[in-house]
Amino acid sequence: MRRDHGFTLIELLVAIAVMSMLALLSWRAIDGMTRTQTLTQERSDGLLRLQSALGQWTADLDAVLDTSEVAPVDFNGQTLRMTRRDSAETGLDSPGVRVVAWALRPAAEGGQWSRWQSGTLRQRDELARAWQRAADWGRGASSTTAAGADSSLAVIGVAQWQVFYHRGETWGNPLSSVGTEAASSGTPATNSMPNGVRLQLTLTGGQGLNGELLRDWVRPTLEAGR
């Protein structure tokens, strides 16, 4: 006669220990894959936000319109303001103008590079008031108005930002008078459109992107050799 034998207690304990180790290793592998996927998604989202912001920055400068009322582009060391064509009304005989501003605004987790824009403007007094509201917003004021036409958007976390103008033959501080002398009359031309605008951003950590970024814009109507 043959007697069937089952597993001993030691064999069961060894089997349970092996399965526990396999389960632990599997959990660590899945957790590592999840963390990697989350980090990749965060960096991808941050890169898309940055690309969108730089695209909007370039579009704003490309659409700058000199109204002869205020400087087409003005940087006071804190806020960059500009007057641009209203892209929503390009088909009209007399399209409106918008005031756009970029500034580093305070936030709960460091600074946020942000964009502000006014509603459509068609009167001189409207332009003057919007120009002032843009400066106030850059200093920390609220972006809302009674009409609700103004709007602002926090773009990306930035620790520091700088703007440089290209005038004459070199890049320099927008507040400097170097390179602003008019060639014909010898009078200052600080309110004229610069040949180029250089953007320098220092991105904050903890958002998938960090380090320093440079972006140069050249005036589309700039003549060759100038």
Score class of each variant (00 low, 15 high):
Val100Asn: 08
Ala88Asn: 07
Gln56Phe: 12
Ala63Met: 11
Asp86Thr: 09
Arg122Trp: 10
Asp93Thr: 09
Asp86Glu: 12
Ala130Val: 09
Thr120Val: 15
Arg129Asp: 14
Arg133Asn: 12
Gly55Glu: 13
Trp131Glu: 13
Val100Ala: 06
Gly110Glu: 01
Thr83Tyr: 02
Asp74Cys: 04
Arg139Val: 00
Thr79Ala: 03
Ala135Gly: 11
Trp113Ser: 10
Asp62Ile: 15
Arg84Thr: 11
Glu126Thr: 03
Thr120Glu: 10
Arg122Met: 07
Val64Phe: 08
Leu54Pro: 04
Arg81Leu: 15
Ala101Cys: 13
Gly96Arg: 07
Ser94Pro: 05
Val73Lys: 01
Gln78Asp: 15
Ala88Gly: 09
Val73Met: 05
Asp66Ser: 12
Leu127Asp: 13
Ala71Glu: 04
Asp86Val: 02
Thr83Gly: 03
Glu126Arg: 03
Leu104Asp: 08
Asp93Lys: 09
Gly110Cys: 02
Gly119Ser: 00
Trp131Arg: 07
Asp136Val: 01
Ala103Thr: 13
Leu61Gly: 04
Gly96Ser: 10
Phe75Gln: 07
Ala59Ile: 09
Ala71Tyr: 02
Gly55Val: 12
Ala71Cys: 05
Ala107Gln: 06
Ala108Asp: 01
Gly91Met: 08
Gly111Leu: 04
Val99His: 14
Met82Cys: 10
Val64Asp: 09
Gly91Ile: 01
Thr79Met: 07
Gln78Glu: 14
Thr90Lys: 09
Arg115Phe: 05
Leu127Glu: 14
Val73Pro: 03
Trp131Phe: 14
Gly55His: 00
Arg84Gln: 00
Arg81Ile: 01
Val70Cys: 07
Ala128Arg: 03
Leu61Cys: 01
Gln112Arg: 10
Asp93Asn: 10
Arg105Lys: 06
Gln112Phe: 04
Gln123Met: 09
Ser94Gly: 08
